[in-house]
Design a binder for these strands. Sequence first.
DNA 1: CTGTTAGCGCCTTCAT
DNA 2: ATGAAGGCGCTAACAG
Lengths: 337, 337
Amino acid sequence: MARTRRSVTIIDVAKAAGVGVSTVSRVINNKGYVSEETHQRVSEVIDDLGYAQNLAARSMRSQQTNLIGLIMPDVTDPFCIELMRGVSRAIIELDYDLIIYTNGDIRRNDSNTRMQQYVSILNSSVADGVIIVIPLADDFPPVSPVVSIDLNINHPSGPAVIATNYQGVREAIDHLFELGHRRIGYIGGRMELMSGVQRQKAFEDAFKEAGLPLDDRLMLPGEFTFSAGYQRGLELLSLDEPPTAIFASNDQAAKGVYQAASELGFRIPDDLSVVGFDNIPEAAYMGLTTVDQHVEQMGYMGTKMLYRLIQEDDPEEDIYQIETTLVVRGSCQPFDH
Amino acid sequence: MARTRRSVTIIDVAKAAGVGVSTVSRVINNKGYVSEETHQRVSEVIDDLGYAQNLAARSMRSQQTNLIGLIMPDVTDPFCIELMRGVSRAIIELDYDLIIYTNGDIRRNDSNTRMQQYVSILNSSVADGVIIVIPLADDFPPVSPVVSIDLNINHPSGPAVIATNYQGVREAIDHLFELGHRRIGYIGGRMELMSGVQRQKAFEDAFKEAGLPLDDRLMLPGEFTFSAGYQRGLELLSLDEPPTAIFASNDQAAKGVYQAASELGFRIPDDLSVVGFDNIPEAAYMGLTTVDQHVEQMGYMGTKMLYRLIQEDDPEEDIYQIETTLVVRGSCQPFDH
DNA sequence: CTGTTAGCGCCTTCAT
DNA sequence: ATGAAGGCGCTAACAG
């Protein structure tokens, strides 16, 4: 980097205005006593010189930054976008600013570096608090308050927002049962995450309690991605006796199933019923029956929780549960034996 | 903020490991010579203490942060999301990280504070370079390299990525002409932005060159928002002689027009043809004929440009133009007089 | 190979 | 009402 231009600092302003740095600081932050006249002069110089605070330096000194950090694996993912929406809404209400930190893609999984980075952000005083989506990090002593969205199964500590995954999947599977489906494929999610585990357990329990046998070949591990859904969808639909319905552990994966079905000549819902999870905006257009986990709300509540943490350092509730809702659309049809 | 917990610093690590701070620094950043043995010991201490770099301090000292900043008015807007997608893709390729900075909502328009904040970010060494979407800021001496997406009409300086707005709108209007439409409503965009100005000029020129009269009542100022589209849509369709087609200056506004049309009993495309601009993903589902300005690509190219700027401080091309493409879908129908 | 030291730009006492 | 001076945590010379 060749750039050597140096920005104008508080010292430059002080010199130009013929005052001390602390006076300039007072003017900038509007605290402490400054004579009207001095204030005026300093303000002018600031304008003239085009001075602007250096955030890094500022946050290093002072406690409060009025910034809330959002750490996400992938800004491209609809879940994350929806969540951002909620965070954004809360941010506006709270008059905070938002810094979203991401390494661009969940797949770039050089975990060690990642984790290190995450922790750095927490540690830095660049944000007053942080929301972590899909927490992968080990446990560590966070300096800033942290709220996580979803939970890591291995380190379930700390305040979090999470949907009633279990209940949601139960409803979804019961819905399929009612429609007469018995051979139901399951495409799993990340098993390090509470959501992945809970959804799978719900699926298994639904069968157990209904006294129905679970077919191992119909339960595939997966991920919360389109391509996982696609791959697993292909596998399921290529079985000698393919399932009549597939539950995908999120809508992205469900989209993948759509793709797989289309390629293999299965029509939805005629030949195959599909249920997803999340209710991303696209689901409405797809006519996908899915479990709404009110992602926007998760982001909103998470941010509010974080705010309380920042203010009082005292989490009222550790884990905030968001009630899921089954949204029935056109992707499922009765199955007649 | 009551929190006084102090994080473990590089000094703590140095002490605990019985080495100097610079050695620790070398280990962390993997540069300079450190004996295998020392490296080992320091690494262990780092793990034990749960040390993590303080980003603020780091970026204050060093030139490079490997962070690219993206300043957006509104993370919620489909345009911005699409753009983010492209930036994100480039980020991954370049092995940078991404910090997205936003004040949550374009409507929170306390411009002065905003601008000040923007400049602060630029000034701070928190990011190696910055991409500004919809630049509102005055001209100022930026310390970090900046690439803007779209251009402020008042300060059109600096490298930027912008679509061929003029050409795009011309094509769109010509399309409507060919379908037989003559009474075409126009809902404008932000006129501080190059895109807003260019699109409007193209609309006017299309009529002029076709030798058709422009009806003032059919040309409404607007914004790039749903509600603007909705309001203006209502106005246009409530005219004694409503237009047979409406060009909305972006897809969000077009969505608003859909809403207005639906409320007033206009069917699209039977009673009203609609064209948008942007080609946001939703447009496909809506069946909206629109001008694709390849927003993802804009983000991608912008980031690449920025990268070059960071590396060489020498912008090869100042303004990168993205070719628009007319995407014909079902929202337009021939109009027979 | 490793330690010491001087700032980076700012805010905050503490004097004046 | 204002100025001087001491760090915040870190990296980058410069010495050993």
